[in-house]
Design a protein around this nucleic acid. Structure first.
Lengths: 211, 211
DNA sequence: CCTACCGATCGGTAGG
DNA sequence: CCTACCGATCGGTAGG
């Protein structure tokens, strides 16, 4: 009876999600085959389909679980009941740490969600929107003023730009780590946010925020 | 003799590059077939291969021409011989304008260069590195100090993060345009860059810049 | 009748 | 510059 037993369903499925995230991040959604995912997990393709319904569900799960962790970070920081500036700082530091520990899932979230079906895509985008709104509210709180209503969301997006872009240039063996850069982002943002003024509308030219 | 004539080789090739950029940006490199490119151009697949050698050359040309335009912007601004702060401001404004007019090529540059062969990829990355170095030098010039040598490149990358990320959230029919956001980025960066201090190295933890 | 898979191959389509 | 194809591999599923 002491023959080799397969790992439990739950842990095997987790291993599949982790391997798939690596491959999707490296090769893109369409450039990654289910054969490759199966091979990376050391199982056959039919075995892979025992754990996941199809390729779309695989990427949907990776993205959904990642954005759910980001929402959890927002909730955790809310529970700390901090003053505006320490609160935004805590959000930044924790998001950077979350990204550092889930770079593959993060790339899947930012690049591969477009390949989902309309319904699943909307579910992920809705979660992203909640995270963005939480950051925009945190930005508004550190920058009270008449134009805050108009500018807090674009400022939050510039902030996301700084931290989302990090994974393209920070290398594990390099001089600066994600943890090193989080306070730099905070210094830059808190130092500069007071200097920002509402842009005057150009002649007939308009564009708005969607995310 | 007055029958329909094909457009000239050069203009047809330009049209193909533009159409291919749209499709690659929308569907990714692997998710876009050469059949789709041909169909979008209203030509047959063999006709498409009359203008391009293969799929990789197509994406390489799109990325190379885009990064070449960015290098041209750097040269043009250098020719203006501006003071440090107006110079960096001019770089930011012109880069944002360049992105706004080449969003598809920009996405191809940031997402699809990984699918090139080693040689072509290195050629594009080398051009990107020259652009980053120019920004890092411009950042160093507005921020003279002992730690400038260590921090100018990461600060330039945070700056690139803000402007590179814009194309993910600015919508053509929205409230803010690329042109509206360029001065906001300038205000935020110039206002905050003075507050940045060199991060103290964590215990045994290191990471550096590659791009 | 369940689970956890296997070797083989399905109908279509990819780049060329 | 088209029709007609190739070697291979795609995502997904058959029988056992």
């Amino acid at each position: 009876m002491a023959r080799g037993r397969a790992p439990s369903y739950a842990s095997q499925r987790e291993a599949i999600l982790a391997q798939a995230a690596v491959l999707f991040a490296r090769q893109g959604y369409s450039g990654t085959s289910m054969n490759q995912v199966a091979a990376a997990c050391g199982i056959s393709k039919p075995a892979l389909y025992h754990y996941v319904r199809d390729k779309q569900q695989l990427v949907a799960t990776i993205a959904q679980e990642h954005v759910a962790r980001l929402e959890a970070v927002v909730r955790d920081v809310d529970c700390l009941a901090l003053e505006p500036q320490p609160r935004l700082r805590e959000l930044i530091v924790r998001f950077v740490a979350e990204y550092a520990g889930a770079q593959d899932a993060h790339r899947v979230l930012t690049e591969d969600v477009r390949f989902l079906g309309a319904e699943e895509r909307e579910r992920v985008l809705a979660a992203e929107r909640r995270v963005v709104d939480a950051f925009a509210a945190a930005v508004a709180a550190v920058r009270p003023g008449a134009d805050a209503v108009a500018m807090d969301k674009p400022l939050a997006m510039l902030l996301f730009g700084m931290i989302n872009w990090m994974f393209t240039w920070i290398k594990p063996d390099g001089r600066f780590s994600y943890d090193d850069m989080a306070p730099v982002v905070c210094d830059l943002f808190f130092g500069g946010v007071g200097a920002v003024t509402l842009p005057q509308a150009g002649p007939g030219r308009h564009a708005s925020i969607a995310a």
